[in-house]
Design a protein around this nucleic acid. Structure first.
Length: 844
RNA sequence: GCCGGGGUGGCGAAACAGGUAGACGCGCCAGAUUCAAAAUCUGGUGGUGGUAACACCGUGUCGGUUCGAUUCCGACCCUCGGUACCA
């Protein structure tokens, strides 16, 4: 044994060469044993709260897209710590959700068991990336100690009248035996499985998010969020200001109320359209009744999506036989019922102005209804008796006023936003803290009795009579009180519930008296930086803002908005390979020949695409394989080096080599690979070249700036350039080299810790102070300027900074290269852009 | 359709406030080292022409503003993401 070991050593002369596997394990253990990243309230330091959108721990594990955002926040967390901030940087699990429940149904294991296994895999994968999380603050939404407070907040919502029961048509998926959210249904199918979805009226818990529409809209103003996300939320809330106008039925006392944003087009209204199901439909008589009823019935059976798709292609509708009187002129207007008008928006009725509304226009053309233009090209009214010639603005005012004076109209604001359907007929979610008495009246579980723990049941599927799975828990379902037999709510909350407030729990995760203490909340305040994917631009970010606003109104939090700055990381794409039949091949099943890819099994030519990573496309890149070949530091570095954080970028395994190489060279420059001691070239005393010192300080400066603006790719490029420059130095002063290792450390913490230790520093580099660049090296005395003739660069010159126009002119005229290009031309005009260029306009 | 990104070498990408492209990395080529290969190191590398100095062309397309445009303006094409009759 001894002999072979010696032999081994002989064959591996560089036995202390860069070895990420050993040093990364070493430092991960060190951090966890020393609780290096543990945070507590410390009023002596400014706080900084940097948050990742916590993951849903799926069975598939992490892919290479997850660490992108995690690395970015980690760099910020480590950087801010070194800058003297008290940093909160937590991680947890959004653990309730349908996939675990479906897996449970298939394998007949408890979802909690599966979730636990998934979490431990996720945690292992995340921990091997060396992220500076305070794991003592780890939370899990499916933990009763967590969802106890989710239930508690729900009770707050209920107390404030923001939660109510309603019979609403919902997306019922027979195959899954469950109700789906709108965002889960595409083309009448469940997005996850493709199972068909139909409409079914059910009793559901709803949250009155519409009551906060105005506030949620206003709150966006002051947020440092990407413009597009704000726009998307504004669109979703969909505020529109307009007029409600009564149109009286010609032959009955009733009237219909329509909503319009363009009252100035009133004279162009040639018909009205009501949504199927509108109350006025009851007044339809005689020969029209059967047709209208049949139409309404047909539409009611369609899913929202199908209905929209169909209506977008071709307008459908039927005449009701009813007429209304035009409110201002002597004219009868027919009422039609059509599915392009929706019951849930406005009043479910519109005055159709085919001259100025595309949808109305298409409808009018199809059914040969009159089309009147009432506004000309100059934005003045025509064909509008009494208002002809007025500007749109004036006419709008005038028409509004006269309708309001007549008492048949009022100004109003409507929202596209609808109340939030908040219950699911599923097992794996938070039980509602609600029950019903024997009269069917709703009762709340008292706060002391929380949590209502999810009961254990025999199968995770609905009961035979279509009740939610929780109805299977017979012993749990009912309980006796002096007032009689009580029956618990069997719906559970949607997955969004837990993620609505998790960022608050991180502030005080162990609190057993409250979701979080007021003090903790007051100290940590808003999330200073929140990084996650764009897919949550509306849903999660709007729902959690809503809850936060409510908590604010309850006096539980001191800021109205939870997330001060938001940043969306771009998606990471990967190359996929497909044959003529559309069958996908894994990278390991293909080979490359002259830039063309072929399948190994049949030598078939394959087409390649760069697309979203997905299991079905066999192009998912697992971070584990990257870590095992190149180490976590290289993975982190590559994730950040690929390109700008917010862009979608293709994954290229070869690219990892480049950053690995960089780390290796940093290592070899720092460490004597024979002895594992500090390299002999890193010395206490020496005089580095001025170029080197300048580059060092410029690097410190650039890296600092780039971290602040989340431009990690160029920060890394700068460090690489600096390293390239180090080759020219025979010796490097230790004190200065330490500065470089410090600025590298947020990006590549393991190697930096190891080199730091080898340099003889005793405490973790994460506790070191961030260096600042010396001003004297940031400004140089010489600059290079271009000399141009007629806008074309002729030569580049190094000159003193800030030379005068006269000096520049002289320099230009005496320059040999310039003279040789003049060919008898003379200078008409000379442009001198200080420190940039001198350009002469020359003519013959 | 609408809204928002994005089109720059063989590839991922740089370029401050308009200042005269392609930083950094991958790949490729050549050399060193090696019995050889891998690894490593050194140099080169936008295209076309030329031994070369050099010349011309080059940031999706067409046009405009400017001494000067990847950057500003207008029209269009392609691509990715979001969204969907919102009255």
């Amino acid at each position: 044994m001894g002999i072979s070991l010696d032999l081994y050593d002989c064959e591996q002369p560089m036995k202390f060469d860069y070895n990420p596997e050993t040093i990364e394990k070493k430092w991960q253990n060190f951090w966890s044993q020393n609780k290096t990243f543990k945070t507590d309230i410390n009023t002596n330091k400014p706080k900084y709260y940097v948050l990742d959108m916590f993951p849903y721990p799926s069975g598939a594990g992490l892919h290479v897209g997850h660490p992108e955002g995690y690395t970015a926040t980690d760099i910020i967390a480590r950087y801010k710590t070194m800058k003297g901030f008290n940093v909160l940087h937590p991680m947890g699990w959004d653990a309730f959700g349908l996939p675990a429940e479906r897996a449970a149904m298939r394998s007949n294991q408890h979802p909690a068991t599966l979730t636990k296994a998934n979490i431990s895999n996720f945690k292992r994968q995340i921990q091997q990336l060396g992220l500076a999380y305070d794991w003592d603050r780890e939370i899990c939404t499916s933990d009763p100690e967590y969802y106890r407070w989710t239930q508690w907040i729900f009770l707050k919502l209920y107390e404030k009248g923001l939660a109510y029961l309603a019979d609403v048509p919902v997306n019922w998926c027979p195959a899954q035996q469950t109700v789906l959210a709108n965002e889960e249904v595409v083309d009448g199918k469940y997005v996850e499985t493709g199972d068909p979805v139909e409409k079914k009226v059910m009793r559901q818990w709803m949250l009155k998010i519409t009551e906060y529409a105005e506030q949620l809209l206003e709150g966006l103003e002051g947020l440092d969020w990407p413009q597009n996300v704000k726009d998307m939320q504004r669109n979703w809330i969909g505020q529109s200001k307009g007029l409600l106008i009564d149109f009286k039925l010609s032959e009955a006392a009733e009237s219909i109320e329509v909503f319009t944003t363009r009252p100035e087009t009133l004279m162009g209204a040639t018909f009205c359209v009501v949504a199927p199901g509108h109350a006025i439909v009851q007044h339809v008589q005689h020969e029209y009744k059967a047709l209208v009823d049949a139409y309404c019935k047909k539409v009611a059976n369609m899913s929202d999506r199908d209905r929209e798709m169909a209506a977008a292609k071709e307008k459908t509708g039927v005449f009701t036989g009813l007429f209304v009187d035009h409110p201002l002129i002597d004219k009868k207007i027919p009422i039609w019922v059509a599915d392009y008008v929706k019951l849930g928006y406005g009043t479910g009725a519109v005055m159709a102005v085919p001259g100025h509304d595309e949808r109305d226009h298409a409808f009018a053309e199809k059914f040969e209804l009159p089309i009147i233009e009432v506004i000309d090209d100059n934005n003045h009214l025509i064909h509008s008796e009494g208002y002809d010639g007025q500007s749109v603005e004036d006419a709008k005012q005038g028409i509004c006023n006269s309708l309001i004076d007549l008492g048949i109209a009022k100004e109003t604001i409507t929202y596209k936003l609808r109340d939030w359907l908040f219950s699911r007929q599923r097992y794996w979610g938070e039980p509602f803290p609600m029950y019903y008495d024997d009269q069917g009246q709703v009762c709340t579980v008292s706060q002391k009795e929380l949590p209502v723990v999810l009961p254990t049941i025999d199968a995770f599927k609905p009961t035979e009579d279509g009740e939610p799975p929780l109805a299977r828990a017979k012993d749990w379902l009912q309980f006796e009180t002096p007032d009689g037999t009580m029956t618990r709510e069997t719906n559970t909350m949607p997955q969004w519930a837990g993620s609505c407030w998790y960022y608050l729990r991180y502030m005080d995760p162990k609190n057993s008296d409250a979701p979080f203490s007021f003090e903790a909340q007051q100290y940590w305040g808003q999330v200073d930086l929140y990084i996650g994917g764009l897919e949550h631009a509306v849903s999660h970010l709007l729902y959690s803002r809503f809850w936060h606003h409510v908590l604010y109104d309850c006096g539980l939090v001191s800021h109205r908005e939870p997330f001060k700055k938001l940043f969306n990381q771009g998606m990471i794409l990967a190359q996929s390979y497909r044959d003529g039949l559309g069958k996908y091949y894994h990278e390991s099943e293909v080979y490359e020949k002259k830039g063309q890819y072929f399948s190994k099994d049949g030598d078939e030519a394959l087409t390649t695409m760069v697309e979203k990573m997905s299991k079905s496309k066999l192009n998912v890149v697992n971070p584990d394989e990257v870590v095992s070949s190149y180490g976590a530091d290289a993975l982190r570095l590559y994730e950040m080096f690929m390109g700008p954080l917010d862009m979608t970028k293709p994954w290229q395994m070869n690219g990892v080599k480049g950053v690995y190489h960089f780390l290796q060279r940093v290592w070899r420059l720092s460490v004597d690979v024979e002895s594992n001691q500090l390299s002999e070239d890193i010395v206490d005393e020496c005089e580095p070249s001025n170029e080197w010192l300048t580059a060092l300080h410029q690097t410190i400066h650039k890296v600092t700036e780039d971290i602040e603006s989340l431009k990690f790719n160029t920060a890394i490029a700068q460090m690489m350039s600096f390293l390239n420059l180090c080759k020219a130095e025979k010796q490097i002063p230790k004190a200065q080299w330490a500065l470089f290792i410090k600025i590298l450390s947020p990006f590549a913490p393991h190697i930096s810790e190891e080199i730091w230790a080898i340099m003889g520093f005793e405490s973790s580099i994460s506790r070191a102070q961030w260096p600042s660049a010396l001003e004297q090296y940031l400004t140089s005395a010489k600059v290079s300027i271009n000399l141009c003739i007629n806008g074309k660069k002729v030569t580049t010159l190094m000159v003193d900074k800030d030379i005068s126009y006269e000096e520049a002119e002289g320099m230009f005229k005496t320059n040999e290269k310039i003279s040789s290009k003049m060919n008898g031309m003379h200078i008409k005009k000379l442009i001198h852009v200080p420190n940039r260029l001198i350009n002469a306009i020359c003519i013959k």
